Simulated scan of single mutants.
Amino acid sequence: MDLKTAYYIGIMSGTSLDGIDAVLADFNSSPPSLLHTFYLPYDGELRSRLLDLNRSGNDELHRAAMLGNELARRYAEAVTGLLHGYGVKPQEVIAIGCHGQTVRHCPESGRGYTIQLCNPALLVELTGITVVADFRSRDIAAGGQGAPLVPAFHQILFKDSQVHRVITNIGGISNLTSLMPNGEVAGFDCGPGNLIMDAWCLRHTGKPYDENGAWADSGKIIPELLEKLLGLQFFSLSPPKSTGREVFNLAWLESYLSGDEKPADVQATLLQLTVTGIAQAVLTYFPDAAEIYLCGGGARNAALVAQLRMALSGRKVELTDRFGVDADWLEAFAFAWLARQVILGVPSSLPAVTGARGARLLGAIYPG
């Protein structure tokens, strides 16, 4: 098989716990081509089981192993749907890059581990395709944060020789990638994206997310609550830094609530928390950035995007769709590329982003 022309699949299931994004990519073109996409939503029962593993509990090793098997079966289902939709056979695919489902992310010194659930060996058996998985562990072993991993791919797609751009991914967690005209790349997690807003929305409305931010838009920001939430040490830490549900969760939010707040007002405050985390990070670390491009599920939240444009006035704020890269699929696209880097034996980490001791080959190969 010609490694330069065959297809790669990228699979991403992020901290939002909404479902599985799968993409078919071709890297024989410049820029790379996103050929086809497939989405498989999580049901409420699976989402609940995954959330339970974000904290210690009874028999969690067994539960984690069983969920890894279940996720492998669902990833395989997504691969089948993806290939069928584009008319490609499994033997035409070089590899699947599967991020897995993060349930713990503790990269700090003294702990130094990250857990993304999947059973890659089972995924190989179910699809007949080589799988590349466990992308974060090697970077953490080298002293890095293990996240974010996509800035190197952002550089390939979006770097401009004249303009300083920032790519903002608003998934469960928000993160930034700075692309300087001189080729310098920086990036880090900057705070919550959708995960707390989604959890609060589900609890009070029964809906998995606040479509277009309409519910948040109906409420009023609670300044005292916003100030308390922004007082979290994470926001004042200097990069490199990464975060997850261990820090940003409903229990953390509830520790600052009196119980008298209107739910819509809390939602408005959470939306502003996401906006402020992004805007402050841009203004503090990348004040010269002229263009901000958004991706991830939060890029479809009209109220959030409107607030970001106000907070970052004087700068162009648009979606990555402008470049022909759908904002909803960019992260899965990146893991197809990361898998290709491993297959080709090319390091894909950026020590300037994660803080690792050097560039590393990220990912473990499970041959088909």
Rank of each mutant, 00 (worst) to 15 (best):
N169G: 13
G14W: 07
H84N: 15
T80Q: 09
L179M: 06
H62K: 14
Q101P: 07
L308S: 08
I221D: 00
D52C: 11
D288N: 14
L273Q: 10
A64K: 12
Q272C: 05
R49A: 14
I115D: 03
S16K: 08
G277S: 10
G193S: 10
L3G: 11
L361V: 13
N194W: 04
S48R: 15
Y366N: 06
L67A: 04
F27R: 08
E318W: 02
G146T: 04
I156R: 15
F286H: 15
V247C: 06
P181R: 11
L35A: 09
E125H: 13
S313A: 15
G324Q: 02
R63V: 03
N249Y: 07
G97Q: 06
D260S: 14
V342F: 00
M310T: 15
M310K: 15
P181E: 07
A364S: 11
Q341C: 11
H105N: 05
T130K: 07
L126A: 10
K89D: 12
I167T: 10
G146C: 01
L312I: 10
T320K: 06
S174D: 11
L179K: 07
N69Q: 14
G110L: 05
L362N: 05
M180P: 00
S348H: 01
K207E: 12
Q233T: 15
L225Y: 01
P223N: 06
H204I: 06
A356N: 03
D189W: 02
A6G: 15
V88S: 09
G128W: 06
G97E: 03
K159V: 02
L330P: 01
T284I: 03
F158V: 11
D217N: 15
P148E: 08
E331M: 02
A214I: 13
L344A: 12
A142I: 00
V275D: 05
G128R: 11
H36P: 04
T205S: 14
V346R: 15
F323A: 14
A6K: 14
R136F: 00
L257I: 08
Q155W: 02
A121V: 08
G193Y: 02
R315M: 04
I278Y: 05
T320F: 01
D217M: 12
I11Y: 01
A214S: 13
E261D: 06
